[in-house]
């Protein structure tokens, strides 16, 4: 991914491009992400409370069914074609929580359905989410190792 070295003429033009590119409205995006991300977390907490209080799941384990439900919601919203419209405004507020992970998997699975169940859906489902899984597994391994050594 190393950027190719620019000639002076290319450098001159790229400086001009940088000036011409309108910047995204960072403040608005950050505020919308903060509010929508917060709402997603409130929903997650409500689900956790629902599983502990109503379904009698032990508090330590209630996060698991809550997360699964959030994934289901994210997947359904993607399937109904609503997720991308919400994400347009919410941005990181929907992308960072587990809902974003669900969206990346389901959108890819939907997109490649026509290429068959095995090589289409199953293989390409993780084209976007693969990096998240790799980093997740790697991080879990490293922290598991640290945990094992110091305890």
């Amino acid at each position: 991914m190393a950027k190719p070295k620019l000639t002076p003429e290319q450098q001159r033009y790229q400086n001009k491009v940088k000036k011409a590119e309108p910047k995204p409205d960072y403040l608005r995006n950050a505020l919308l992400a903060f509010v929508s991300g917060g709402l997603v977390c409130v929903l997650g907490q409500a689900l956790t409370d629902f599983y502990t209080i109503i379904m009698q799941v032990p508090p330590k384990e209630a996060a698991n069914p809550a997360t699964a439900t959030m994934i289901l919601i994210g997947a359904l919203l993607t399937g109904f074609g609503v997720f991308d419209k919400l994400a347009k405004y919410a941005g990181a507020g929907l992308a960072v929580p587990v809902t974003g992970f669900a969206n990346s998997v389901v959108s890819a699975a939907l997109e490649f359905r026509e290429e068959g169940l095995i090589y289409g859906v199953c293989a390409k489902m993780f084209t976007l989410a693969g990096a998240v899984i790799t980093f997740g597994v790697m991080t879990a391994f490293v922290f598991g190792l640290i945990h094992a050594i110091f305890h």
């Binding site: 399937g79 991308d84 941005g91 969206n103 990346s104 389901v106 959108s107 997109e111 976007l128």
Partner: peptide
Amino acid sequence: ERQYRFPTEYGAQRRPY
């Protein structure tokens, strides 16, 4: 979009440019 960028239902924010 599929060939060059993201799946159509993927919730990516588009750049203003």
